[in-house]
Design a binder for these strands. Structure first.
Lengths: 360, 360
DNA sequence: ACCCCATGTGAGTCCGGTCTCAATCGTAGT
DNA sequence: ACTACGATTGAGACCGGACTCACATGGGGT
C-alpha cells in the first residue's frame, strides 16, 4: 500500500534480463553462476539484479532441480523438551549444510503422523526424519523410501523398515539402571510410560514402541540375572496427562505391595510423579526412590536432586540430520559412526527402600 | 532399489490423464476438484490416480497459485521451553487451518535472523512470524511487508514497524510484581537478562529489546511511586551461559549492598540462578527472594516452589498464527482481540528480606 | 590464409501443475 | 426442425527458473 495498491509481482530473471539488455538465458547464467558468461554481461546482470532487488524464487528452482533443500521433521511434540532439544540439533545441523526444516507435530497419534508424512512428501522435501509414534504401524513410513526419498528414524525403530535409525541402546542402560536399583535393595520397581495401550501391561505383551520394549527387556534381564522375577504388575502405560499420572503414582505407592522405586519414562511424566509424591507427603528417597529418563536442567534443583538417565538428545538430532543429508547427497556412510550411549547420573533420588530387605 | 535401479519419476497429471484416456486439462480438473467434469471422466481419472498412486506436487501447485500454505517462523531458540511452547501453539493453529511451518533458529543473533528472513522469503512462504532478536535493527523485517507478505511479531516489538504484534503487557505485570516485592520490604531488587549489550546497564540507557525496556520501566515506576530511587546498578545484562549467570548471581549476592531479591528474565536464567543460590548455601526465601518469568512445570517442584510471572505462551503462539493466517487470507481483523495478559503466581519464593526494613 | 575448438549467446523446452479460451455436444425452448 | 445456452472437453499459455541446442565469434596452431 505504501507504493501502489496492486500486489507487486516479484522481479524475475526475465525482468533482470530486460533491464540488463541481455537474453533471459544469459541473465539466468550470470545469476545462477553456471555456464559461460562474459564479464561484461555478468556485471550488467548483477547490477540490474541489485537495482531491481531480484531474489530467486526457490520454488521455481526446486521444481526443475528436483531438490528443495528442505528436510521434513515429524516429532511427537516439540513442547516436550526432549524433542525441543533434538529438533534444535536437527535444525543446527541442517542449517550448517544449507538445509531448512519443516516441522510437524503428531501428538503421538499415528493418524496425524500418516497425514504429516503425506504432506511432507507432497511438498517434495528432500528427506524425512521421523520419531515414529508407533513401531508397529509403519506402512506410511514404508512409502517414504519407496518414493525415492531417504528416511531416518529418531528414538524408535519401526518394524520391517530397513532404514538408518538414530537412538541409544535402551536395553543396556535400562539394565544398568535396574541393577543399580536392585543393588540398593529395591524389588518393587515401577515403570510409568505415556505409551498408549488398550490393555494394561502383562508380561511378554507385544508393545507398540521399540523403545519401551527395550527398556522393559533390560529391566527384566537385570531381575532375572539375580534370580528374581520381574514385577510386571508395576508397569503402567497410558500415562497421558498430569492427572492420570498422579493417579497412577498414588496407586503404585499404596497398599502392602507398594512400589519402593519409580522410574519415569520421560521428563513430562517425571514432573507429575514427583508432584504426586510430594502431595502424598512422602520424601524422596527416604520413602520412595525415583529415577527418570532425560537429564533436564531442573532435575538438579529439586530436593534432593534427581538421579537420571541422560541421553545425548542434541547429538541424536545432529546425527540424524547429518545421516539424512548424507543420504540425500548420495555420499557414503560416515567413516566412523560413534555410537550414542545414555548414561546413569547418580544424584540423590535413589536410596535404600524403607523396609530395606537384605540383598544378596 | 527394490523395484528398479533408476530413480522413479513421480506420477503426474499427464500420466493419470493418459491412463484415464482424457486430456491433461480434464484430469487436472477432476483431481483439483474445479471446473466442470462429467461423472464418467471424474471416475476414470480418480481410479487411474488411485491406481498409479498419484500425489500432487505441491511445489508446482504453489508456483502458479502463488500460495505455498507455509508459514515461516523465526525464533531465538526452540530449545528454550518458552519458544517450544509458543511454537507448539503456532503449529497447532497452523495445522488447523491447513498451513505448515518452516522453523528457523537465530540464537538471538541478528545476522542469523536477517539470513533466516531472506531464506523464508526466497522460499515464498505465505507469511512470517518473527520473535525479533533486536527491537532496533529491523530493516530486514521491513522488507517482509514490502515484499507483500504479512508479518506478525512475537514477544517483542520492532522500531518503526507498523505490524501486528502479539505480546503481553510487560510494563504492567512488571510494575505489579515489583510492587509486590517492595511491599514485602525489598529495596535491592536485581534483574538478570540474557539481552546482549556492549556496555553495562545504566539508568535511562537505550535497550535493544522492547520487552526488557518495558520490564525495567515497570520496575522503575513502582519504585518511583513509592518515592524510592530505582537501583539500576542491580540490572545485569549479557547473562548468556550458565557460567556467566552463576557469576552474576554471586556478585549480586555479595557485599554490604547485596540484592535481597532477584528477578530472572527467563526460565533458562532462572535455572542457573537458583543453582548458584543453592551452591552459595543460601536459602530461598529466607536469604534471598526469587521471582522469574514464565511458569514452567518444574517451578512447582523446587523447595520452596517458585513465585513466577506466568505468560500465556501457548495462546500467544496460536494468536500469532491465527492473526497471520487471517492477514494472508485477507480477512478482516478478529471481531474481538482478547488481550493477552501475564499474571503473578505467588508461590513460595518471595519473603521479607533478611534485615527487614520497615515498610511504609 | 584456413581449420579447430573453446567461449558466448539467444531461442526455446521442460518441470508439474493452474487456468483461459475456443470448440463441441446435448438438449430445452418455440 | 432450428436456435440457444449451459455443460464438457482439449489445446495451449503460463508460473520462474534450469538447461539443451544451434549458432556466432575469435584466437591459436600450422
Amino acid at each position: 500500500m505504501s507504493i501502489n495498491g496492486s500486489r507487486r509481482r516479484d522481479t524475475t530473471v526475465a525482468d533482470v534480463a530486460k533491464a540488463a539488455q541481455v537474453s533471459k538465458a544469459q541473465a539466468a547464467r550470470a545469476l545462477g553462476n553456471y555456464g559461460a558468461v562474459s564479464d561484461d554481461v555478468r556485471e550488467r546482470v548483477l547490477a540490474a539484479a541489485e537495482e531491481l532487488g531480484y531474489r530467486p524464487n526457490e520454488l521455481a528452482r526446486s521444481m526443475n532441480t528436483g531438490k528443495s533443500h528442505t528436510l521434513g521433521v515429524v516429532v511427537g511434540d516439540i513442547e516436550n523438551p526432549h524433542f525441543g532439544l533434538a529438533t534444535r540439533g536437527i535444525t543446527d545441523a541442517a542449517k550448517k549444510r544449507g538445509f531448512n526444516v519443516i516441522l510437524i507435530n503428531t501428538d503421538e497419534e499415528t493418524a496425524a503422523e500418516v497425514e504429516a508424512v503425506r504432506v511432507l512428501l507432497d511438498k517434495r522435501v528432500d528427506g524425512l526424519i521421523v520419531a515414529p509414534a508407533s513401531s508397529v504401524e509403519t506402512q506410511h513410513l514404508q512409502r517414504i523410501p519407496e518414493s525415492g526419498r531417504p528416511l531416518v528414524l529418531l528414538d524408535r525403530t519401526a518394524a520391517g523398515l530397513d532404514v538408518e535409525t538414530v537412538s541409544v541402546d535402551m536395553a543396556s542402560i535400562s539394565y544398568e539402571s535396574t541393577q543399580y536399583l536392585l543393588e540398593a535393595g529395591h524389588r518393587r520397581i515401577a515403570f510409568i510410560s505415556t505409551l498408549k495401550s488398550d490393555a494394561p501391561y502383562t508380561a511378554g505383551m507385544e508393545l507398540d514402541s521399540s523403545q519401551i520394549s527395550e527398556r522393559l527387556d533390560g529391566m527384566r534381564r537385570a531381575f532375572e540375572e539375580k534370580g528374581l522375577s520381574y514385577p510386571a504388575d508395576l508397569v503402567r502405560l497410558n500415562a497421558g496427562n498430569a492427572e492420570s499420572i498422579r493417579k497412577i503414582t498414588r496407586e503404585l505407592l499404596a497398599g502392602p505391595e507398594a512400589a519402593t522405586a519409580i522410574i519415569a519414562s520421560d521428563g513430562l511424566i517425571a514432573l507429575s510423579v514427583v508432584e504426586a509424591i510430594q502431595e502424598l507427603g512422602l520424601t524422596i528417597p527416604a520413602d520412595v526412590s525415583f529415577l527418570m529418563y532425560d537429564d533436564f536442567a531442573w532435575t538438579k534443583l529439586t530436593t534432593p536432586p534427581l538421579t537420571v538417565i541422560a541421553q545425548p538428545v542434541y547429538e541424536m538430532g545432529t546425527t540424524a540430520a547429518e545421516a539424512l543429508i548424507r543420504q540425500i547427497e548420495g555420499r557414503k556412510p560416515a567413516p566412523t559412526t560413534p555410537a550414542l550411549t545414555a548414561r546413569l547420573i547418580r544424584r540423590g533420588s535413589v536410596g535404600a527402600p524403607r523396609a530395606a530387605s537384605v540383598f544378596s
